[in-house]
Design a protein around this nucleic acid. Structure first.
Length: 275
DNA sequence: ATGGCTCCCCGTGGGAGA
């Protein structure tokens, strides 16, 4: 099974890039972030023509996530509320979470808030959102990864098969930044953000990309400005995290930089894992 | 460097992204 993640920065602007990429890379599941489209305007048909089912959680102008899958997903859910209830219901106003199950693997597609700048309101929101994500993932593990509250059948054995992917807007390691100088003041690289993400990963996840590639200089996002892509001034902020059995099973994890070379590209490029 | 580039919107500049 191949699962990919891609922040497309507007699905309507990037539609041809996505369709062409799927034709070249017919992954089983493609998780998208920053679709920037309301659900009633989502372009289902081009993906249906390629044989993909579409699952969406969108809003006007900002955010928005979607999952495309060759086979139907089960137990699709959006937001934190299905597992966390009313306590963090306000965090679901921004559409950043969608999850579904395929072949016993719970796939969670995430668009972590950017955080704007260190010390800003948006930065505080990002940290609060990551704390909620930790609770959400812990609850998911407690449920055996089904994402379903009702336990009508015996829970599957733990550890659950969980896959977290998406735009995390955090570079966990200095080698994931082209130049980490001064990173403690840079959003996406501060200790508080890293600690908040590590608290999620401590529930039992490993970075699929780092199973195969230990070198720095591998990035998934490059700023539109200053010819950053041409100069490879990037960050690795799009991640795929796996629970232990899936991590053992993984046979490849690759960043495909080729769509970033096209005309009018997203500033992010796809990352995929083969299980 | 209130810089750089690109996205969106009942837009014609400003907010947001990262």
């Amino acid at each position: 099974m191949k699962v990919a993640t891609w922040n497309v920065n507007s699905i309507r602007t990037r539609l041809n890039h996505i369709v062409n990429w799927l034709q070249e890379n017919p992954v089983d599941v493609l998780c998208l972030q920053e679709t920037k489209v309301m659900d009633e305007s989502f372009p289902h048909q081009p993906f249906a023509d390629l044989g993909y089912h579409t699952y969406i959680s969108g809003q006007k102008s900002y955010n928005g996530v979607a999952m495309l899958s060759r086979e139907p997903l089960s137990n699709v859910s959006t937001g934190f509320a299905p597992l966390l209830g009313e306590a963090v219901i306000d965090l679901d106003e921004q559409k950043r979470v969608i999850a579904g199950t395929l072949d016993g693997i719970r796939i969670v597609n995430l668009y972590v808030p950017n955080g704007s700048s260190v010390g800003s309101e948006k930065y505080a929101y990002k940290l609060r959102w990551l704390a909620a994500l930790r609770d959400y993932v812990q609850r998911l593990g407690d449920l055996g990864g089904t994402g379903v509250e009702e336990e009508t059948s015996p829970a599957p054995p733990l550890p659950s098969s969980l896959l977290l992917c998406g735009d995390f807007n955090i570079a966990l390691d200095d080698i994931d930044i082209h130049d980490p100088t001064g990173r403690e003041k840079m959003v996406m690289a501060t200790d508080l953000e890293r600690q908040a993400l590590q608290a999620v990963l401590a529930l039992g996840f490993a970075d699929a990309f780092r199973k195969f590639t230990t070198e720095g200089g591998n990035f998934s996002w490059w700023d539109y400005r200053s010819a950053a892509f041409r100069r490879n001034l990037g960050w690795r902020i799009d991640h795929i995290y796996l629970t232990p059995a899936l991590y053992e099973r993984a046979i490849a994890c690759t960043i495909d930089a080729s769509p970033r070379k096209l005309e009018q590209p997203s500033d992010h490029t796809p990352v995929w894992v083969e299980l």
